[in-house]
Design a protein around this nucleic acid. Sequence first.
DNA 1: GCCGTGGTTTTGTGATCACATACCGTATGA
DNA 2: TCATACGGTATGTGATCACAAAACCACGGC
Lengths: 195, 195
Amino acid sequence: MRVRIMHGELAPGTALTLRGLGREFGVSMTPAREAIRRLAAEGALTLSSSGRVTTPDLSNDRIEELAALRGLLEPELASRALPRAHIALIDRLQVINQTIAEAISKQDPVAYLRTNLEFHRTLYLRAQAPAMLALTETVWLQLGPTMCALYGRLRRTEPPQNHRTIIAALRAGDEPGLRLAVRTDVTQGLKMLVG
Amino acid sequence: MRVRIMHGELAPGTALTLRGLGREFGVSMTPAREAIRRLAAEGALTLSSSGRVTTPDLSNDRIEELAALRGLLEPELASRALPRAHIALIDRLQVINQTIAEAISKQDPVAYLRTNLEFHRTLYLRAQAPAMLALTETVWLQLGPTMCALYGRLRRTEPPQNHRTIIAALRAGDEPGLRLAVRTDVTQGLKMLVG
DNA sequence: GCCGTGGTTTTGTGATCACATACCGTATGA
DNA sequence: TCATACGGTATGTGATCACAAAACCACGGC
């Protein structure tokens, strides 16, 4: 429920109401409120003064900060996943990569975003670091709406070259290369957004 | 309310009940539940199957992971705070440091922990990076109960030498030195816990 | 003496309600 | 014509209730 709400298909600045969400999902106010508050607790929603709730639209400083967070956390996760990455994982990553290419050619930003995150999560799951992954997903959640909105604006056409570099580094067991590839993949996309 | 609960004065493994907490704080189940769920969402509480809620007692792997997270996030925060650190801040840090020394001499683990975190937070507030600070506090929250319990077991007597190194690096404007000092301060304490 | 099974109690969940408050539209006056 | 004040509506908050499930305890059987 909350996952679908915040996965990116909600424009930043949208106002949410407890009763509205309750009606939409066929539940009462109590579970809706709980979901809202939980998302607000991890920064995915901003609850304005007097509890009014909206999806946040982030300032450029905030985007830069969250991008730095990704650039800090994700290389570490990738590095931890590297020793445990075997062929089956790499194959799955390549399949996901193909799906990403399809989403790009279809100009479907929400599918692109979702599959892109699936690529990263699939890799990071191997890191056996649940707390670190949870924190990273928190960051994704906060970036979700703005990223989706901005990807919708600028027409991406280039294929996911960075992902290919990541897979290559994974195959070669090249730890510094992997860190660098992940970092550039993460920061490059977000640098375009603020710039 | 939730801050006081998780600030460290709760042994890991304690079971919380909604109605119990409600009675303790003079409120009904609804706000108590909300607080519980919020804390559970950020990993400060583990809600077992069927919603039973306890304070988590962390495995050594988990402690190591959270320590790595601190070692990743906090040097970055300190580095960002460095250009904005002026004399008044350093003075305040030194005052807090004195309070820490008092807590150590009194063998009061919860006061030690609280003041120690106040030291770090005071520094990191200058970084102007709210999301990063929020994530770091999440990590603190998760570590809270175990750290308190373990600090109670081992009798610390050494004064906070690392904090003095941090302040010195801050004064000198030495960015790599600051990063290193923060990293060792953070990881050293936690290395003793698992070891 | 120990283990399984029954009932009782506790606990979490979701719904509904009453109340305070914030927001919005309108009307009136300068 | 614009600003301000007032009233109605909608919204969040906290409380209470009914229900289901899980835990606990005791009793009986092997």
